[in-house]
Design a protein around this nucleic acid. Structure first.
Lengths: 342, 342
DNA sequence: TATCTTTGCTAAATCGATTTAGTTAAATTT
DNA sequence: AAATTTAACTAAATCGATTTAGCAAAGATA
């Protein structure tokens, strides 16, 4: 069953497909097509259930109304929620989103960018993995619209939407300090990612501002792709002797780590918050219902998503403004729950 | 900076673009193109960083190597994980995935199908909302490749991958019964969805098989789009008097409900599992770390995702087999944790 | 009446690939 | 030497839209 094309309508009405195209694009008036013919064309289009072929449109106009989204992992609720906001905002403007999970792997993201490029996406929203600088730089050079989210590369002038990770971590750490915690650990991942580095720096600064010496042994940097075991090892090392704990609080730099961490802490039998307090980045569902609901840094996902889409679409619509790239830093929230005591 | 096309290569090498197309499609031998020219073409393609334009390919061949995925909500970890599997499996075959969240809204899904159709996707993987029968039927009629996941419509012969919801719910309920629970409630949503109905039926059967009369008051069906408040109301109604509980266990038909439910149960101050036992569908992260880790029905997400993609790609590759549609029912797992006592 | 405008429409080029139907020159057969 | 086959390649149509350039007829102006 072949789909109906402009030509089919043109034939049925007995006019040229040029005219049909004009009418269906709502430019009938502009091209002085008579009311009657306009009506006939529209009727015919409805009758034949005409659906424009976006490939043909895209090939001709150079615009596909599709954007490529590259994130670490769509199964990770943080990116899931973010992706949802992006999808929603994009849909409002008639744009599709092709989702790609890079697993923080630069080779994957490179391949994904290439694929998306072949599909002629109009622009990209990317949460770039480490070592993908060249990929991003080459988008810049090619004057290809893109917006980075969650992280960015300090050396590359890009449009990007991030949160104030330093401030957020500072605030979270300070919250622990104010409640009397002294031996605060930080479990994080891959400090080559700016956002992660900023978090750990905020943590350090908070300690420093209270004249607490930073003990590098209390900062655990998990391997690239980490699982339960890695987190477990880190926590056992941190805790040390069950009856003489080396730490009294942990700042988790991601909710993925935090959830595994709490699972592990519970397993060891440490009481939260009595023996050990915890705070974490990202307001995961799990944190709301766990033994002691966890205080968290909440990111403004809706704002990140909508801003990213809007800036991208703006770039797409006005390529000439490509030079003024903007870095937008959003404020995070801090939700106090029971995991830090009181 | 214009992208390089077949023509550019053709000009540089001094041959026709027909030849270039043959060579780049690896059909040089087949068309007796000389070794030397082949090499030159390939070199030139590499030098000019040729990337085929998928729009043009798609327009000509009628295949876009893109599949449309319609699910309820990508921010819901269940669908997030499923989406991830689908994306991954599709990528293995060079396919892209366009993600659409329908919010269980048939108007949205209808619009999304139309959009995807315009984008000429090769096929669909859909978790169809209620009242979308006509949309699915029309795909069938149009001989358009599609696979349903998570649910299906009994009246429509479709390819679909689902789990044995009846059996899973039966097993979960039975688990509660075996541990001595007598007054078991079920909180679910929208019984018009087959999968939800099957779950509640499995629950009923388990009770019946132990000669326990089904009390319809213990089955709470939440409104279409539910939030914390709805769950809270349901649970407060179920529980009744704090000191004389009307129920001693709850089966949550989805993890979204379950997570909110546990939040609420904790709020009321009921002890899990002592005062009230819980089991839930879907192995959400939250269930691993909450007060009493929750026993769950675990769905084989990887299998659902990969099977869905494979069947779909098979349909796409062999449209003539469109008639033999298959319904695949997978087994679920049951993970025992502490939420039911012992 | 001749010229200019306006109205209402169409032909054909174009985007970048694929693919069918040839073509030419060389090699082989008769 | 003529006829046939093969090797190596190309022209042009096609997919379905958009868009530029332009045409014919009617109405307005000089």
């Amino acid at each position: 069953m072949k789909r109906t094309s402009l030509n089919d309508i043109a034939k049925q009405v007995g006019v040229s497909k040029t005219l049909v195209s004009f009418v269906l694009n709502g430019r009938g008036k502009e091209f002085r097509i008579s009311e009657e013919i306009c009506r006939k064309v529209l009727d015919s289009a409805k009758e034949l259930n005409y659906q424009p072929n976006r490939l043909a449109q895209g090939l001709r106009t150079g615009k596909t109304k599709t954007i490529g989204l590259i994130i670490a992992d769509i199964a990770n609720p943080f990116f899931g929620k973010l992706g949802r906001e992006i999808e929603q905002e994009a849909a409002r403007y008639g744009y599709h989103v092709i989702f790609c999970s890079s697993d923080e792997n630069p080779e994957k993201s490179e391949q994904q960018i290439a694929m998306l490029q072949q599909s002629q996406v109009d622009g990209y929203i990317i949460s770039p993995p480490i070592h993908s600088e060249e990929q991003i730089r080459s988008l810049s050079k090619g004057n290809i619209p893109y917006v980075l989210i969650d992280r960015y590369f300090p050396g590359i002038e890009s449009n990007c939407i991030v949160v104030d990770n330093f401030e957020a971590a500072y605030q979270a750490t300070n919250h622990l300090l104010k409640l009397g915690r002294k031996k605060i650990a930080n479990i994080t991942v891959n400090l080559e990612l700016v956002n992660m580095r900023e978090r750990t720096e905020g943590y350090k600064q908070a300690l420093a501002d209270r004249s607490i010496e930073v003990d590098e042994n209390l900062i655990k940097v998990l391997p690239f792709s980490h699982d339960n075991k890695d987190v477990s090892t880190a926590i056992r090392e941190l805790a040390g002797d069950r009856d003489n704990l080396k730490v009294d609080a942990i700042l988790f730099s991601t909710s993925k780590i935090g959830i595994m961490g709490i699972e592990c802490v519970t397993e060891i039998g440490l009481k939260i918050p009595d023996e050990i307090a915890v705070v974490s980045f990202d307001n995961a569902d799990a944190y709301k219902i766990c033994v002691s609901p966890v205080s968290v840094v909440a990111q403004p996902l809706k704002e990140i998503g909508t801003k990213a889409v809007r800036i991208l679409l703006d770039e797409i619509a006005h390529p000439e403004t490509l030079r003024k790239r903007q870095k937008i830093v959003l404020k995070t929230g801090f939700i106090v729950r029971k995991s830090c005591g009181s």
